[in-house]
Design a protein around this nucleic acid. Structure first.
Lengths: 228, 228
DNA sequence: ATATTTGATCTTGGATCCAATTCCTGATTG
DNA sequence: CAATCAGGAATTGGATCCAAGATCAAATAT
């Protein structure tokens, strides 16, 4: 793994509540940002030393993230950063389609001009950005606005968890195909258009297409990465 | 809480792997079966003593179940058995509709006569049963067959988690309205009919209606329970 | 009398220690 | 020479101990 975890730690703003939470957040972003590659074992002792805490909060954090699908744990085995194959990415896509479609349908009636302005601003920024991390951050914020407006906190949580599960792969994909970053953004313009006109059916359709598009690219990329 | 947890422990068949898993399973069924009422604090020290283990595996189990939505935890506070209000039950219903509809659509093409026979047999048993726990067990098995056939293990997991979140309330409701048990079963007959004819659209519709029906009753019951 | 503050007790969170299991290496046998 | 078995090192799981925060009650002040 890349060993500039210390970097991540120092740059992560945090109001400490419990060490468990702190460690969990650090580990989550570490995995999402690719400090651990998919399938790579996570050395708890090493991590404990680096973060200057005991093994206990690490163990708890690992289980937390295992439940979120970011870590794979088996009894008496080293925990590893979770790995997805193209099949699984598609299965997650199927679920996300239903959930995000539901979410945008719910959100559409509650959206106002202020939200639209925010969404516009985000898309405009994404159009001109170079940095991948920043692009993903803005992208997440874009979808978060919509999914929060759905008013269903369970739905929001589940969607975000699924988004996290594929984020790592999206990041690696974007890193290899820089152009894809901006081509994905045309979908966002369409989503805004659908929301603007309060066209539930169109929004439903557009968001599904958006997910399908990115999943195709990511899973395709994954396949050639796995060399078959 | 009811203190016949020992009962549950002794009657639960188990091949022990780790104590964590064991405790998690026990606690989960304990909560699902209503040994802890919604909102009731869970005394970890007491539990540890009863199960004859240290507090450690209990802590881990509690966090596990917190992630599943069965326990509510806040830092430095006693964990409590999660509680849902009618609003939340409906929010979960909205999600389940999409997921279970997707699931049955996926399953329908893979179903064969053998599966149908199993489903039939389960429904017939449910028609004649008196015991609520047994009814719920059969009901879960019925839906599990369908959801497993979807071929999407993530979907299966999410659906089961959501089902668990409302199971407790369903159980209490059924306990108060015995008749409801068999009236819910007419939906199952319809589901089978839709599956039999491989009518995806009908199946989608019927399963949504089924979920809507039980949610209406449960949330209505919950409202009058909360006294308003 | 009520409200606020302070202190004692209880409970959770974190560290450390010990036990049990796995993994890896080397030796032994076919 | 390969394969299997055994033993030791490493790592996870579980128990215990200690610290930090929360709760509750009593006392004091307004």
């Amino acid at each position: 793994m890349s060993n500039n975890l210390e970097d991540l730690v120092s740059h992560l703003p945090y109001r400490k509540v419990t060490t468990q939470e702190w460690v969990t957040d650090i580990l989550r972003t570490a995995i999402l940002k690719g400090y651990y590659q998919a399938g790579e074992p996570i050395e708890t002792a090493e991590l404990a030393a680096k973060l200057n805490v005991s093994r206990m909060p690490i163990r708890i954090a690992l289980r937390e993230l295992a439940k979120e699908g970011l870590v794979a744990m088996e009894p008496h085995r080293k925990p590893v950063a979770a790995r997805l194959n193209p099949d699984e990415v598609w299965k997650i896509c199927d679920i996300r389609c239903e959930l995000e479609a539901l979410s945008i349908r719910k959100a559409i009636s509650k959206i106002n001009d202020d939200h639209l302005k925010q969404l516009f601003s985000l898309v405009r920024k994404m159009d001109n950005i170079k940095d991948i991390d920043e692009y993903i951050r803005l992208n997440n914020e874009f979808h978060n606005i919509i999914n929060t407006l759905s008013g269903n906190e369970f739905l929001l949580g589940m969607i975000n968890q699924l988004r996290n599960n594929v984020e790592r792969y999206l990041r690696v994909y974007l890193f290899n195909y820089r152009g894809a970053m901006h081509s994905a953004n045309v979908d966002h313009h369409e989503i805004i258009k659908a929301i603007e006109t309060k066209d539930e059916k169109l929004a439903d359709q557009v968001i599904r297409q958006h997910l399908y598009n990115t999943t195709s690219k990511v899973s395709e990329f994954l396949e050639q990465l796995n060399g078959r």
